[in-house]
Amino acid sequence: MQKGVLLVNLGSPDSPTPKDVKPYLDEFLMDGRVIDVPPLLRNLLVRGIILNTRPKKSAKAYSKIWWDEGSPLIVISERFTKKLREHTKLPVALGMRYGSGSIKEGLQELADKNVDEVLLVPMYPHYAMSSYETVVVKAMEEQQKHFPDMKVTTMPAFYSSPEYIKVLGDSIAEGLKDFEYDHVLFSYHGIPERHIRKSDPTKFHCKIDGTCCSINSVAHHTCYRHQCYDTTELIKAYLGLPEEKVSTSFQSRLAGDPWLKPYTDYEFERFAKEGKTRLAVITPAFVSDCLETLEEIAMEGDEEFKEAGGESFKHISCLNDRDEWVSLMAKWILEWEEQAKLPV
């Protein structure tokens, strides 16, 4: 069998214009694992309300972070893929869950190279139904429909892998090196609380009350909240960060249903009012900088924190295409290729 690798990231509009943002948002928000309500209600909510106003606002946000080469997330993902190809003998393709450069196109690229055994790598450290899970489900749908003879193995969420924690921790240490901070905030992508319960295979463990995450359970394998807090604790221990200077929060919520708390923007205001005027922010839910990290945190977060009385704000970049991160992914791929071993 010829083995190959498919990396899958979120995706991006083709340009920072309402014309291109609208179809991208339509595909993204009509995903039943992103807005998990009945199809008719989702259609009414997305196409009847959100898409009438959101594309213009989102296009303005994208235009603030757009690079000459294109969308930062796409450019970074392509750079990472190019470097990874230099570290492995296997064919490596890149696909996006939404927008151009689809998962189907990525699988086709591998099939054209006679690949019939694929390692699917969702470029998300943590398991969530709106990120990791939807990538896996979409990839399997495309495989079964268009590539029935292709075998697909999925890389598990790697949020707690000691090797990953080392690479991420070293990157964070480098970002903190010349910054005298009062507090370090680990800000993760937010999801509705109901997603945590829906992802609980036991249907009773997850209570989102601050205690269930500390009780060992099979539910932790698909519990985004637990995994985020685990990453924070592991990085804190690896770097020896003071307990009182580290916390976790969640960003990017929609109005209506309760989302994971505490909310990042509320924390910005709270820290400033408590006299924590020098804040470092890390966004470990992403391996590639994107709209949520570059605009929502690095730009808007900076502004919100300083308006509340903060003085110094530093967003520490994602791993992006750091050589150490590329080398680790290449190591995982080699282990899979030779021993069918994946990160633990």
Rank of each mutant, 00 (worst) to 15 (best):
F80A: 05
W259D: 01
V5M: 10
T154Y: 09
G101W: 07
E193Y: 01
G99Y: 12
H126L: 10
E335Q: 13
E292A: 10
A340Q: 15
K261Y: 00
P125K: 08
E142K: 13
D323F: 07
C223Q: 11
L254D: 00
D257Y: 12
E243W: 06
D20L: 07
N9T: 15
L25M: 13
R97L: 05
S312H: 13
S288K: 02
R270N: 09
E338K: 15
K113S: 15
V137Q: 09
H189G: 02
L10G: 03
I235P: 02
L41F: 09
K276T: 03
D112K: 15
G190L: 05
S12M: 11
Y127D: 01
F147V: 14
D209C: 14
D31E: 05
L239K: 01
L168H: 09
L25S: 12
T222M: 09
D149F: 12
D182V: 15
N216Q: 10
S161E: 11
K207R: 15
K261Q: 06
V152S: 08
R253C: 00
P284S: 01
E295K: 10
H315S: 12
G70T: 07
H221Y: 14
K261G: 05
K331Y: 09
K22S: 15
P122K: 12
A285T: 11
E274N: 11
T154H: 10
D68L: 08
D149A: 14
D257G: 08
D230G: 01
C290F: 04
G309I: 12
M140K: 13
T202Y: 00
L7E: 03
D149E: 14
V5S: 08
E338H: 08
P38D: 02
T17S: 08
Y188W: 08
F147Q: 11
V46M: 13
E27M: 07
F268E: 01
Y224T: 04
K113N: 15
K306N: 04
L342E: 01
